[in-house]
Amino acid sequence: MAWFKKEKTPIVSVEQKHVKTEGLWTKCASCKQIIWKKDLAANLNVCPKCNFHFKVGARERLEMLFDEGAYFELDADFASNDPLHFSDTKSYRARLKEAQKATGLKDAIITGDGKLGGRPTLIQAMEYRFIGGSMGAVVGEKICRAIELCIVRRSPLIIVSVSGGARMMEGAISLMQLAKISAGLGRLDDAKVPFISVLTDPTTGGVTASFAMLGDVNIAEPGALIGFAGPRVIEQTIRQKLPAGFQRSEFLLDHGMLDAIVHRKELRPFLIQSLNFMQAA
């Protein structure tokens, strides 16, 4: 059957081709234009043609925000021990392993300790590729530890959210993280230490219904999906199509739920200026 000798075909050729085309170009999900990945990266992963904000990984996000992109990671190795022994079509343990392998992270948030505009600041960034950025006990614990450290140091906390909400595979434990983190933020508030929440696409469910909406200032990137119930669930419940732009950043701004929509390029200066207002240098 063979038209050519198999051994002459380089084994990696197909994969390499794939990587080459996929690697150099990407198609903008909004304006459908083909963009050079290099251009996209140089533009903070924002489409140079239509300003569509592509998702950003947690590490990339911290590098984008901290002075010189430099930070120490705290609590890097906290990993879930699957308290419910949860299994659906796949076991939670297998899902965790896959996500850890794909992202190089142990769970869906990383804590960076560094400087922002010269000011010691903790920034936490969520990772959507880790089980949809879902929040379980590890995310809850890492945020609470960050809050407690910020209270002791009197240094600001910034959390960049991207999450589908509480992590189902940890059941009621993940639900209680909402209360645990919110209680911590109550203490941070009592201590008058700044907390800024940055919501990015998408931020829904228990993350929106806890820390993401509790910033002294809540800001979002343009066009981000933000809400409690997901649009599909709402559509199924009310059996009608949702209005255009529903639950997008602009919609939330209009309804008084956000302080501002901030373009990714403006994010760092916005945060620095806000912190300058909240705290003496």
Partner: peptide, 20 residues
């Protein structure tokens, strides 16, 4: 409640605020 009005009036914010 998964409805348009509940989202418009910020049910996530309302829940978060109560928790804190």
């Amino acid at each position: 409640y998964p409805g348009i009005d509940a989202e418009e009036r910020g049910q996530a914010e309302a829940i978060a605020h109560n928790l804190r």
